[in-house]
Design a protein around this nucleic acid. Structure first.
Length: 456
RNA sequence: CGGAGUGUGGCUCAGCCUGGUAGAGCACCUCGUUCGGGACGAGGGGGUCGCAGGUUCAAAUCCUGCCACUCCGACCA
């Protein structure tokens, strides 16, 4: 199988187009009874996931594509902000967690297992201990700081009650980054970099994510923000000044080495808090009545500054400019990558199915051959499919011998942003129809015009 | 972890109360007619009825235990 093709500009580009006849897309016509919320229902119906156990899902090809797209956006923005990717294992030694004191503190949410030698292991719910161990083994000088290391890896938290599909699974894919600085001043700069990176990350997925002051929970520390997207089905109650919805998101050219505090200040000066930390008196004092927004939200990320919580017990120190050892100041920064798949669907769907924002869509375009086997439609579809693929557009060609109605329903369900309808009726006039999934807008045009429109 | 439920073909469900050798719709296969918003007809394939015991001539159905899953609540990226 060819995995790559060489395009005109000599860069390697993966071939991501697909014929439905070769794909694996087990669409369900009826809604499985266990699915309560829209994203869970639609992910099951669209053949994106299959439940294997409570809170544990197999990612089928369509869902996997979206997961990968989201993961890549997260990765690009972490890299842009100066974080460095690595990959830590899912299994960790219990002894490592005894060093920080969390092995006993964490409770039954942590999955504990033993190997054949009776050694105690755990399936990592997070990686502060391990990254601190990795850091302290190699970094000795303040001159090597700051550092921010991250990985995108599967986590396991044995939730008492998993629900809402991938929004609250036990196994989930998370990006977790860890910053190391010589003092609190430096750590707060690292915190701000992640703050800004998160604003950009979620905006690139088409989401309005609002940073809110948060409790620090079992991770510890004294400075933390949760990033929530607003959705009625969210698990957290939120109170905020609706002006935060219109604040500008920093562009690609943001200087991560510069002073980011004005951006952070702008986003944090408006009232925004989850139910846990909500202060009604302050809310009423600071926000005029007409701007008070009380709704629900889905947490898609959280950032913490936790100081020396792990570096003290685990003895992570560097030599400072003064020649003496300084305990490093740390922060951790999580993004729920798999949760985002569900969260995005919650934000973008209608009664017919999903409406993917283009940056995370599993395909950009789906071609619907309205008369499979037609002497005019088949070659027209083949030409479009080949040309779009050559243009670098991820295209799904619905080439199954199904009735038009079934193809329309399937296309709406799986939510590809653009549908190209190729039928004998339009083709008789040399036209095909381009339909935008987000608003249903349709336009008749020639195949050549359609190709021009999608010329990246 | 408290409370409430559910396990019957891939999916949605009926059958269980009142035991008698397993059904429907959708999906799938074959043929034909169809074909711009989930077609129709005819024929066909597919199920250890969650698992293990027990009662009985006979268990999807009654009894006991276990397992899995779901929902409400408390808790969490």
């Amino acid at each position: 199988m060819r995995l790559h093709s060489r395009s005109d500009d000599e860069t390697l580009k993966p071939i991501s187009s697909m014929r439905l006849s070769r794909f694996f897309l087990p669409i369900l016509r009826e809604t499985p009874k266990e699915a309560e919320i829209a994203s869970h229902r639609l992910m099951l119906r669209a053949g994106m996931i299959r439940q294997e156990a409570a809170g544990i899902y197999a990612w089928l090809p369509l869902g996997f594509r979206v997961l990968k797209k989201i993961e890549q956006i997260v990765r690009e923005e972490q890299d842009r902000a100066g974080a460095v990717e690595l990959l830590m294992p899912t299994l960790q030694l219990a002894d490592l967690w005894r060093e920080s004191g969390r092995y006993d503190a964490y409770g039954p949410e942590m999955l504990r297992i033993k190997d054949r030698h009776e050694r105690e292991l755990l399936y990592g719910p997070t990686n502060e201990e391990m990254i601190t161990e990795i850091f302290r083994a190699s970094i000795r000088s303040y001159r090597d700081l700051p550092k921010n290391l991250y990985h995108i890896q599967w986590k396991f938290r044995d939730e008492q009650r998993p629900r809402f599909g991938v929004m609250r699974g036990r196994e989930f894919l998370m990006k977790d980054a860890y910053s190391f600085d010589v003092d609190e001043t430096g750590a707060r700069l690292s915190y701000n970099r992640m703050f800004v990176a998160y604003l950009r990350t979620f905006a690139r997925m088409g989401l309005k994510a609002i940073p809110m002051r948060a409790e620090t929970g079992p991770i510890g520390g004294d400075l933390s923000h949760e990033f929530l997207i607003l959705a009625e089905t969210g698990e957290s109650g939120v109170f905020c000044d609706n002006e935060v919805l219109d604040l500008p998101v920093p562009g690609e050219d943001v200087d991560y080495d510069g002073d980011l505090s004005p951006i952070v200040r702008q986003w944090t000066s408006h009232y925004a808090a989850t139910q846990d930390v909500h202060d009604e008196a302050r809310f009423e004092r600071e926000v005029p009545l007409e701007r008070r927004l009380q709704t629900r939200g889905i947490e898609v990320g959280q950032i913490f500054y936790f100081g020396t919580k792990y570096s003290v017990p685990m003895n992570a120190v560097v030599s400072g400019p003064d020649g003496v050892e300084h305990t490093i100041h740390g922060g951790s920064y999580g993004v729920g990558v798999s949760r985002l798949v569900g969260a995005i669907i919650e934000a973008f769907h209608d009664e017919n199915g999903i409406k993917w924002p283009e940056p995370v869509a599993p395909f950009q375009v789906v071609i619907l051959n309205l008369k499979q086997g037609g002497s005019d439609t088949d070659p027209a579809c083949e030409q479009l499919y080949a040309a779009l693929t050559a243009q670098g557009i991820d295209t799904l060609y619905h080439d199954l011998d199904e009735r038009p109605g079934a193809k329309f329903a399937a296309a709406d369900l799986i939510g590809i942003p653009w549908q190209i309808l190729v039928g004998p009726r339009g083709l008789a006039e040399g036209k095909i129809e381009v339909k935008r999934r987000s608003d249903g807008q349709r336009e008749l045009m020639s195949p050549a015009d359609a190709l021009a429109r999608f010329d990246a």
